[in-house]
């Protein structure tokens, strides 16, 4: 049997991203993975339910044998068998996010021989996770440039805590190719959407008022939307489009959090991205590393790459014979490039 790749969760940014990247690449390469010290640096170490949901989803699409798949477990052994494309439904609790589970199974299924239809039920607009709008407007158009053939549909919104959201993904076999994002290009416009479900519409108006004023965006850029969902929910989604693509920043309302604070957080993050001048924002940078590695090449320019991104790159190098270089340019931005190394990665031996 193939020697498993050993991943130590206490290295670098020991979060759920290490887990999701490891699972996805283990399924793709067919190499087992052993994760130790899972989330070792966190207050409550070990797997939480959202991570368990990712482990179980990855196991379903690969027929994997799993040891240590329990809440609180700090050691997981994952041995994939064969990729299973087709129809899959994953029901996850509100504590987890549908978008994070999609991240885990997306790449293996895109590389499968047949198409897949994935239905994920749970939260679609959770704090600490990409919102559906980020996937639809930022992530999907960019990865289509790498050759991804997929569609995403939000069938129902799911907000914390009631959940009950539905995200459908149609994935067709894709051949990935390198791509380079170097400039932002011309501005194509901005918009702001405030979503409310089972809450007074005044919340949306206040969020739009505050965020548009903070960013100096025109009032007509704002739209308030009432959406159907199983419980109360609110999200503010800000988008800025350039020739290079669209960047979405979201902030999720929660009980006890003032609408103005929700708006200011989103506006601050958007302003920060706009000021940096790079085409790729911090969150997308994280998401592009896997497809670029699978395409065996590609580059982008971003502001300071986070520890998250660097950790992600080092995990990828354990599975695939690629390396990621981080080079700071004279203008302060960073050039991130993925290249093939030729040498087999440790896990391939």
């Amino acid at each position: 049997m193939t020697t498993p790749v050993e991943i130590d969760g206490s290295e670098g940014e020991g979060g759920g991203q290490i887990l999701r990247t490891s699972l996805a690449l283990s399924v793709i390469t067919g190499v087992p993975v052993r994760l130790r010290n899972v989330r070792a640096k966190r207050a409550k170490p070990g797997l939480r339910r959202q991570h368990l949901a990712a482990v179980r989803a990855a196991a379903v699409v690969s027929g994997a044998k799993v040891h240590g798949d329990a809440v609180g477990s700090t050691s997981v052994r994952f041995e994939p068998a064969a990729l299973v494309s087709g129809h899959h439904t994953f029901a996850i609790g509100t504590a987890g996010s549908t978008t994070l589970v999609l991240q885990t199974v997306l790449w293996p299924l895109l590389l499968a021989e047949g198409p897949s239809e994935i239905l994920i039920e749970g939260g679609t607009h959770n704090p600490m996770a990409p919102t559906f709008e980020f996937l639809e407007r930022t992530f999907l158009p960019q990865v289509r440039r790498l050759g991804v053939d997929a569609d995403l549909v939000l069938e129902r919104h799911g907000f914390y805590p009631a959940g009950g959201g539905r995200l459908r993904a149609s994935l067709r076999p894709s051949r990935l190719r390198p791509f380079t994002w170097s400039d932002r290009g011309e501005a194509r416009g901005v918009d702001a959407r405030a979503l409310v479900s089972n809450l007074p519409p005044g919340i949306a108006k206040r969020e739009l008022g505050t965020s548009l004023a903070a960013l100096g965006w025109p009032r007509q850029a704002g739209t308030s939307l009432r959406v159907e969902s199983g419980g109360p929910g609110n999200a503010l989604v800000l988008a800025a489009s350039f020739e290079s693509g669209c960047t979405v920043v979201s902030s999720i309302g929660s009980k006890g959090r003032r609408a103005e604070d929700v708006a200011r957080d989103a506006a601050r993050e958007m302003q920060c991205f706009l000021d940096q001048g790079a085409p790729i924002d911090e969150h997308l940078a994280d998401q592009l590393l896997i497809p670029m590695a699978l395409a065996r090449g590609g580059a982008f320019v971003t502001a300071a790459p986070s520890l998250h991104t660097r950790t992600n790159a080092s995990v990828i190098a354990r599975f695939l014979s690629v390396q990621t270089s981080f080079t700071q340019r004279e203008d302060g931005l960073w050039h991130v490039e993925v290249t093939e190394t030729g040498a087999a990665p440790p896990g391939d031996r």
Partner: peptide, 8 residues
């Protein structure tokens, strides 16, 4: 409601 928040 439990089925919604915790399908497991």
């Amino acid at each position: 409601d439990i089925a919604s928040v915790s399908p497991e």
